[in-house]
Structures are given as structure tokens and as C-alpha cells.
Design a protein around this nucleic acid. Structure first.
Length: 396
DNA sequence: TCTGGGGTCCTAGGACCC
DNA sequence: TCTGGGGTCCTAGGACCC
């Protein structure tokens, strides 16, 4: 007695804005924009009154304020978000261990093993919506379907504060009339590509030979959207409790308040970013082999340069040395930059067994020194231990 | 007063190896 | 003295997602 639609996608409505309003109820029903305070910020989250004016997340804050001049702007500083996120994920796990967290505010659940205890997927969806509203004071939307792609689509159609069950037989009636970019994985570029060959709706795509789609979009994307348009998709969810430890790469980047050309200041920022990244790599208990530098110019063109090390590392000095060499090799002179970024990829589990150089004597490696420093930072704050060149200097 | 930050996956070309 | 085919790794860029 397993439901044919055991996959739930649960998505908090305007998550960052909703958590902010929970703490400041006087803002309820007002257009609220959560986002970067600086001149170069974007909207992280907007309440529905602001969305009614055309604002959406990712939009430059300046443009959002032009569209919605009465909006209240709130910095996302508070720490409430991850507490609410963890609590919500725990609520999900009280139903089933098969929870795949996709971000702070959304997750997939496979409830096929929970039906005997909690009832049908719809019932579980309503149960979770009620519990999250009661316990967290925010609303969410739920999609119920046979595949993750359809569940995701359904939760989007149910928004805000709703639920939609999308059965396989509903696909032609409900999904086919939608524009192609309603499909997960179809963004502006692929949508434009599909329009160019005369395909406007999901139904159009579903009636197009897969070879045509592969030719237009490449083998992977062509095959995938052909399947999705017909309601075929992924039915397994990968239980994943934490989104805080990525498994492919760990990186950090920073857009400057004003474009920066001085190599001394740029290197200082690279050191700061390398430190931040390496701390996270060590905390994750992994080491990475490839270090990538990202540079964005004033005109927004962005380039990357990568270097793979002989041995994977979690050492700040190694990451900084690599990124510093990559920066030097670009020979940018005083060219102003808008952004720099550092990323470590090719992550593998770190061997926490200390290497034996001399019999019975442990190598006092940099990794160990830095781990000790990490513990001090954890206890006493980030000012306790940091590179000398970062002491007493404000961010550029 | 345009365009954040943190990720994943795919593609394509070149090097290198058998 | 005219040069195949396949596999893997690396790098760079791009599309997409939240």
C-alpha cells in the first residue's frame, strides 16, 4: 500500500523575509526586502507585497527600490535563520530519515516508509505545514509527486502557503501548458535556445524527438529535459542532513565596495579568503587538490585560473601560495577588479593519521599548527589568531 | 543606483598514455 | 613521409540552482 506519489518537496515561503518578520511583527503585510546593505547588494528575499511590485530575489537592491520605493530594507545579519532551518529539518526527520536538504529553506522527503504511521503523502504534507506554522511561525508550500522534479514543480505552483499533489496522469493537463522554463534546470539560455527552434511550452518539448533536443542543447541537457517534459525523473532521494559541508568544493568570494586595483590590497583580500576557505576545509576533515582563483573585472567579465597540487592540502599557506601565484601569472598590473574568489576542489577525506617522518616522532606539520589555531579562533573569536598582514587592517 | 555568495554539473580542447 | 582510436586528467568557461 505505497502511494504512487511518495516524494514531497517542502519549501519555506520567502524564508529570510519570513524569519525577519517573525522577530519584527510590525513589518507583517509590508513590502520587506532582506538583502545587502551596501551599494552593490541584491535582494536575498522579499515578502509577497514586495513581489507584487515585481521584486524577486537576486534582483539588484537598487532596482528593487526603484520598483518598490516604500519597501523596508533589512540586513540579513541575524542568526535566526540557521536555527529555524535546523528546527525545520528536524521536524522533517521526525517523519522519515529520507530527508535531502537542498538549501537552508527546502528539502525533499521520501515518505513511502512513513505512510503506515502518518498516513498518505498528502496527510503528511498537511501535518508538516501545520507543525511548521505552529512551531516556527512561518509558512511553507508542499509539492507531492512521484519524482523530485515534479514535486519541485508542484511546490512552486502551490506557493505561497499551499500544497499541490501532482499525479502522473496530471502531467499533460497541468504541466504541458507551462512555459519551458518552468522546468527545473531550464534557465534563460536554454529557454531561449528552445524558443529558437519553436518550442514554447513543456508540451511542445514533450512532442519533440529527443535527437532534436540533444542536437540543440547537448547530450546531457537534451536527454534530461526530454524525460522531464514527460514526467520521468528521479525517484530516489539522497538522505543528507547537512548542507554545511559540501562534498565537491569549498570556496569564498568577495565583491569589493569599490573596484580595487592595488595588488597589495588584492593580495591581502586573497589571504583573507584563502584563510576562510582553508578553515572550512579543515573543519570538514577533508583535503583538496585543486585551487581556483576567480577574478571579475569592472565590466563584469569573469575569469578563472586553476592549479592542481601534487598532494591535496588543507593548509592555509598552500592555498594562499597557489592563488597568489595564479594572480601573479595574470599580470594584471593595476587593473581594477570588482571581485576576487578562492575555491578548493577535488576534495577527498583527509587522512587524520599523522605522518611518521622519524620513528615515533610526529611531524609538527602546518596542518596541525593551523588546527590548533582554529580551536583558538573557535573559543576566542577570529581576532585571536590570524595572519600578521591582516592585523589592524580594515577590509578594503 | 544594475548585476551577492555558495554551490553543482556539463562541455570542449589539449596533453598524455597505451 | 601523411599519421587510428580510446581513455583519463586538467583547465576554462558557462548554465543553472538557492
Amino acid at each position: 500500500v505505497t502511494s504512487p506519489t511518495p516524494i514531497l518537496h517542502i519549501d519555506m515561503d520567502a524564508f529570510f523575509a519570513a524569519v525577519t518578520i517573525r522577530e519584527r511583527p510590525e513589518l507583517r503585510r509590508l513590502p520587506v526586502l532582506v538583502g545587502g546593505g551596501g551599494t552593490r547588494g541584491v535582494v536575498l528575499s522579499a515578502t509577497y507585497p514586495a513581489r507584487a511590485a515585481g521584486v524577486h530575489s537576486g534582483m539588484p537592491m537598487a532596482r528593487a527600490l526603484r520598483m518598490c520605493p516604500d519597501a523596508v530594507v533589512v540586513s540579513p545579519g541575524g542568526s535566526g535563520y540557521s536555527a529555524v532551518s535546523h528546527a525545520v529539518m528536524e521536524t522533517f526527520r521526525s517523519i522519515t530519515p529520507l530527508v535531502q536538504a537542498m538549501s537552508v529553506d527546502e528539502a525533499f522527503l521520501d515518505v513511502s516508509g512513513a505512510e503506515r504511521r502518518f498516513g498518505s503523502p498528502e496527510r503528511i504534507g498537511e501535518l508538516l505545514r501545520a507543525r511548521i506554522a505552529d512551531e516556527q511561525g512561518i509558512t511553507c508550500s508542499v509539492g507531492v509527486a512521484a519524482t523530485v522534479e515534479l514535486a519541485k514543480l508542484a511546490s512552486g505552483l502551490a506557493k505561497p502557503d499551499g500544497m499541490m499533489v501532482l499525479r502522473p496522469e496530471d502531467v499533460p493537463r497541468v504541466v504541458h501548458p507551462l512555459p519551458v522554463d518552468a522546468l527545473w534546470g531550464v534557465g534563460p539560455k536554454i529557454a531561449a535556445q528552445l524558443r529558437r527552434i519553436g518550442l514554447e511550452t513543456v508540451g511542445d518539448v514533450s512532442r519533440t524527438p529527443v535527437s532534436t533536443l540533444r542536437h540543440a542543447l547537448g547530450p546531457a541537457a537534451g536527454t534530461a529535459i526530454h524525460l522531464w517534459s514527460r514526467g520521468v525523473g528521479r525517484r530516489e532521494i539522497r538522505a543528507r542532513t547537512s548542507i554545511e559541508v559540501p562534498d565537491r568544493s569549498i570556496g569564498a568570494q568577495e565583491t569589493f565596495g569599490r573596484d580595487l586595483g592595488d595588488p597589495v590590497l588584492i593580495r591581502r583580500e586573497l589571504l583573507r579568503l584563502a584563510t576562510r576557505v582553508a578553515v572550512r576545509v579543515r573543519a570538514a576533515g577533508v583535503v583538496g587538490r585543486t585551487v581556483t582563483l576567480t577574478v571579475r573585472f569592472t565590466d563584469f567579465t569573469t575569469i578563472t585560473r586553476a592549479h592542481s597540487l601534487g598532494t591535496p592540502t588543507d593548509v592555509t599557506a598552500d592555498v594562499y601560495a597557489a592563488v597568489s601565484d595564479l594572480y601573479a601569472a595574470l599580470a594584471l598590473g593595476l587593473t581594477p577588479l570588482r571581485l576576487v574568489g578562492v575555491r578548493v576542489s577535488g576534495l577527498v577525506p583527509g587522512d587524520r593519521v599523522p605522518r611518521q617522518l622519524v620513528l615515533g616522532q610526529r611531524e609538527p606539520g602546518r596542518s596541525d599548527v593551523e588546527r590548533a589555531a582554529d580551536r583558538l579562533v573557535e573559543r576566542f573569536g577570529s581576532r585571536a589568531v590570524r595572519p600578521g598582514s591582516l592585523v589592524g587592517r580594515e577590509r578594503p
